[in-house]
Design a protein around this nucleic acid. Sequence first.
DNA 1: CGCATTTTTGAAGCGGATCAATTAAAGTGG
DNA 2: CCACTTTAATTGATCCGCTTCAAAAATGCG
Lengths: 245, 245
Amino acid sequence: MHEAVPCTACWLRPRAYFRPLGEAEARFIQEMKSAQLTVAARAKVIEAGEVGGSLYTLYDGWAIRYRMLGETRRRQILDVVLPGDFVGLEAHILGLTEHSVQALTPASLCVLRGRRLSELFEQHPDWGLSLLRWIVEDQRRDDVWRSVLGRLDAAERMAYLLLEIFDRLEQRGMAAEQSCRFPLSGQHLADMLGLSRAHVSRVLADFAQRRWARIESGTLLIEARAALARLAGYQGVAPGPRVLL
Amino acid sequence: MHEAVPCTACWLRPRAYFRPLGEAEARFIQEMKSAQLTVAARAKVIEAGEVGGSLYTLYDGWAIRYRMLGETRRRQILDVVLPGDFVGLEAHILGLTEHSVQALTPASLCVLRGRRLSELFEQHPDWGLSLLRWIVEDQRRDDVWRSVLGRLDAAERMAYLLLEIFDRLEQRGMAAEQSCRFPLSGQHLADMLGLSRAHVSRVLADFAQRRWARIESGTLLIEARAALARLAGYQGVAPGPRVLL
DNA sequence: CGCATTTTTGAAGCGGATCAATTAAAGTGG
DNA sequence: CCACTTTAATTGATCCGCTTCAAAAATGCG
């Protein structure tokens, strides 16, 4: 898919969503990047229980982060991983991962030298704070999702998910006016929202019939954003800019 | 409740759960602490929508962190805040809080000079990394809770919650052999677990009747830890040690 | 084109919500 | 310290949203 891309040629970095780089910073980050990894759709990038493990930035493609529960075939998808997002921070910081990450589409990742993450904190303490800020923003997103799962019904959850993914894609320049690529299956949606596959199908049928949103042949079309946002109490995503490593 | 306590006299710090301090570190932290705040039970420490706001460490007592949803009276309690936990990191880093924090019992908090948090990163980069590690551990806990809310039924959720709170108290030296203080009402449990007050009551009645656990007059008694852990797929909490600011 | 996977749809059952009535507990003021 | 008021916990009856199971339709893929 991609040969090793120098950071100066990164297609993501010019996006307004990502914080611009100074000269020295650019060199430092280029130095952190040790390789480019390409994986096929459905390939596992990180497997729960793995020890150590690298730190990655997803460069292109989609992935999911998930946990399996109690021996059984219960899966909770924790997040959709999009270009610019970290993969493997838990593995890298805590040494052991409890979640898995699987590519949804063909994907490519920048492999970061973990060693240099501590150097980053020492030599660029302001980046340490930027990173902290980013993580705290993610925590807020987690808070919202706990509310979504704990207190919203099926249709509200679905509306929230569709809008959030669309907006995150838009920040990365991966969305059109009111549509975007959407490689999640019904089963994926069910496992993210704590619903059954059958019920996901019914909720989506309802949205399509109301002309609020529809998913067709791998594409999400948002037809009535306002209606969805009102239903879910959706407030938008963190505007950035965010650091990109 | 407490007059300003010097960090050297802190009752929490000697606990094995918290990372021991060097001489210079102790001074730095003492310097960060600018005041001690005491609040009554039910008082709000942080209100959603608040701008700015201090950074605190809960010193004594219990609190809850929660969000209200969509104008209505739907509340999601995101976490129980226990001594040693941060309060107000979101407010401090992002400038605006979307959750509220309310004292459950009379509580006292150490007020930290926010300014010095960035200095901490500069002057003690290893502490920056410790803090990062702590936050990543919290993220893992969030991951687990998303799984709990998304995929476990009422009894499983309750079992998970009781065990986690008990273990967190134990780490802080606030639990006895198989019992601990428990100031959460049925409504609180319902709002944490995404259940109704009535159903919480039924689940607890069932646990009591099975002699697994019971809550009586503000005290939680864990009678059959193994049974609860098996039911919930509970694996324990992060062992620490953790930094204490 | 034909097989495998996914999606859709229907029918039935269940877990938990809701509502309402009762009981118990916790404050409050005299 | 007791009667009164308020708030929270319990319990039963009913209802609804979602699950489960199963079969049919659609879609993708080699």
